[in-house]
């Protein structure tokens, strides 16, 4: 009994320390966005919301976020479609050359992204595509589609293919079987694939920096500003991202709860 309490205590301390290490940096960024100082300080001595006034008031902020959002949104959408079919080829069907395909698709993940970005820029120039946020979408896809394919493949591996056969056998057409059985069964994988794609694209710097051209994403701006002249707008933008994520997650959760309640009411 004595030793058990001791172990529990140790686990609690360990967990606390890890959480502290993980969250103190994020916490310090958020507090310094509320600081008065022109410099990054922790802990904050004097508080102010002037950086929020400045950041939220600037057209730049909207432009950067819109660009990032367009890129990440397009990447998530296209990556999930490609990744879905890629995952079916990866995990669902047995075909000659599947093993080679499984290896081949991993290559872009291991290629250093900065080099990949440069290579893509050269390639875009060669085929006459001007660097822009649209070009960046393709650059991101090269790196993100393989990852999304893997994420969705995990779900596909857990799918009993006999369910599709059962659907045909019960009178479903190929399309009906897909819509009624395959798609809903794989939906959790598609959702996490989309989430991965969006987040990886949103936070990507090395590929964006080579391929967005005149357009700039939030991440690019943050990197550039940190190199060329720090402003507290940097932590402010970071903090805004965190708040945005909290609002989206909480809103999504509420939406799911409302949906479930509505479905239950309809069922009765």
């Amino acid at each position: 009994m004595e030793s058990k309490r001791w172990v529990i205590w140790l686990i609690a301390v360990w967990t606390g320390v890890i959480a502290l290490f993980l969250y103190i940096p994020i916490f310090s960024v958020i507090t310094s966005s509320f600081g008065k100082s022109r410099y990054f300080r922790f802990p904050v001595k004097a508080w102010s919301d002037k950086w929020y006034d400045q950041t939220l008031g600037a057209n730049l902020t909207t432009d950067l976020h819109l660009t990032s959002f367009y890129v990440a949104g397009c990447v998530a959408l296209i990556a999930v479609v490609l990744g879905f079919f890629g995952a079916l080829a990866f995990a669902r069907y047995n075909w000659r050359g599947r093993q080679f395909y499984q290896r081949l698709i991993m290559l872009p993940i291991f290629f250093p992204q900065a080099v990949l970005g440069l290579a893509l820029l050269l390639w875009f120039t060669y085929v006459g595509v001007l660097p822009s946020w649209e070009a960046a979408v393709f650059a991101h896809l090269v790196w993100i589609v393989p990852i999304v394919t893997l994420v969705i493949s995990i779900q596909v591996y857990g799918f009993d293919a006999a369910q599709e056969e059962a659907a045909y056998d019960l009178g479903a057409s190929r399309w009906q079987a897909f819509r009624e059985v395959t798609l809903p069964a794989l939906a959790p994988g598609l959702f996490s694939g989309a989430l991965f794609a969006f987040l990886l694209s949103w936070g990507n710097f090395p590929l964006s920096t080579f391929t967005t051209g005149a357009d700039s994403t939030v991440t690019e701006w943050l990197y550039t500003k940190m190199g060329s002249g720090y402003t507290p707008m940097i932590p402010t933008m970071g903090a805004l991202s965190v708040f945005g994520a909290i609002v989206i997650l909480f809103g999504g959760y509420m939406f799911l709860i409302v949906q479930r309640r509505r479905r239950l009411e309809r069922g009765d």
């Binding site: 009993d160 006999a162 369910q163 059962a166 056998d169 019960l170």
Partner: peptide, 15 residues
């Protein structure tokens, strides 16, 4: 899907 027959699968293949 056009045969008037139905199968109970080994894995049951429930949705």
């Amino acid at each position: 899907n056009r045969r008037p027959t139905c199968m109970v699968f080994q894995s049951l293949a429930l949705f």
